[in-house]
Design a protein around this nucleic acid. Sequence first.
RNA 1: GUGGGUGUAGCUCAGUUGGUUAGAGCGCCAGGAUGUGGCCCUGGAAGUCGCGGGUUCGAAUCCCGUCACUCACCCCA
Length: 423
Amino acid sequence: MSSEGYQPIQGMSDLAPPAISVWQDLERRARAVLESYNFREIRTPMLEKTGVFQRSLGNTTDVVQKEMYTFEDRGGRSLSLRPEGTAGVMRFIAGAGPDFADARLYYMGPMFRCERPQAGRKRQFHQVGVEALGTAHPAVDAEVIALQMHLLSAWGLSDCTLQVNSRGLASDRDAVAAGLRSALEPHVSTLCDDCRRRMDSNVLRVLDCKQEDCRRVVEGLPPMSDFMTEESRKYLRDVLDTLDRLEIPAVFNPRLVRGLDYYVQTVWEITSSALGAQDALSGGGRYEISLGSKSIEGVGFAMGIERIIMALEAEGKTGGDSGKELVWVVSLGEKALDDNFKLAQTLRQRGIRCDMDLRGRSMKAQMRAANKASASHAVIRGEEEMEKGTFLLKNMKDGSQEELEMPELIERFSRALSLAGGE
RNA sequence: GUGGGUGUAGCUCAGUUGGUUAGAGCGCCAGGAUGUGGCCCUGGAAGUCGCGGGUUCGAAUCCCGUCACUCACCCCA
């Protein structure tokens, strides 16, 4: 409290033990699920030329206009910390050649947006995301959504709602915009200032305005799909039908549009009822992104890890970190201390998690340390044991102890290790 | 960028209409006849009361400013 100089900058936080184990566990499960769908990891830089984001996300989006960390490097180039993961992956794909035309990629890592922090919103936050490249097919969209739901259940989340909509084919975009505009025209006077601006810059966004007056206008509008071609409508029906066949509960929400320009056709969002105002756990959709002469198609999503963890906590599902068993080596006397240091090294080389007090503190202090670290066992050795060539192995849970010789001791923990490793 | 709430020990918080050496619980450290943790007992360390200014004989307490955290709007994960 009294030392502000030790705090990280606003909206960014340190991830330290013991909380880190929740993250590690979550990441481990995520990789297992993602790779079971044959997705491979990609790690792109956190810093890109600002244009990479402007071109991919769209210049009129809030993210690009007011939320990016943008600055000039020493050469006067405009660079930005990535506010999301897709743009960097698309830049990679555009330069990668045909080997990656149908790539199935995932990423996890920090993203940056310079907004006012609040519950569920950090300036540095973390996402795990997926991109399935290649030409559009409704089954692929459904598969990616299925993967996403799979991840959520692998993490143990249950109170989630999946909402799906379509923005129509890229070729429908102008017709949809024009249709919405003319439908909104009679109500311009009741719309909020932002929405009046959106009428020109980004009509779709009027649909998810939260102002009450705007909402009322939007409710009276014909569904967006009225302005699309039959091909777009069929695509959405196919996605929803496939989800149904896969027994994935989806809610059709005709007003869901998402905030990034690159989306076409299927868009979706997953919210958690366990969260506060920022209740979107994840969002995704199909996209078409033009970079230079290339146009890239794909479908993907991003999930916010902080929010996932918040939802897990709210659902009471972040169990304590079990981790591997811990052996605490306790020494009495300087000779034993030196020798036990070597014992600890031996155990560590066998992959046994092991710690000890090297400063020669009292036995009581060492036992307290073992307890505090929630060690499963203590290995105790002093003069007596050294003369006999034995070790006292104490079970910290039930308090029982037995006297063992070196080979037995090693064998005991090797067995524990193989059990732990095989789970 | 706009608005609300909060800032007292490592943590969670008390602190009475402004009054002397600012408290508790938990945690930490040490001991409880010299080789055994968790429970219990005893003792100990630890706070520029976020920071700066003002009012006052006197401020943790009142006023102003500032910073930080937090929640909400906007938007998003």
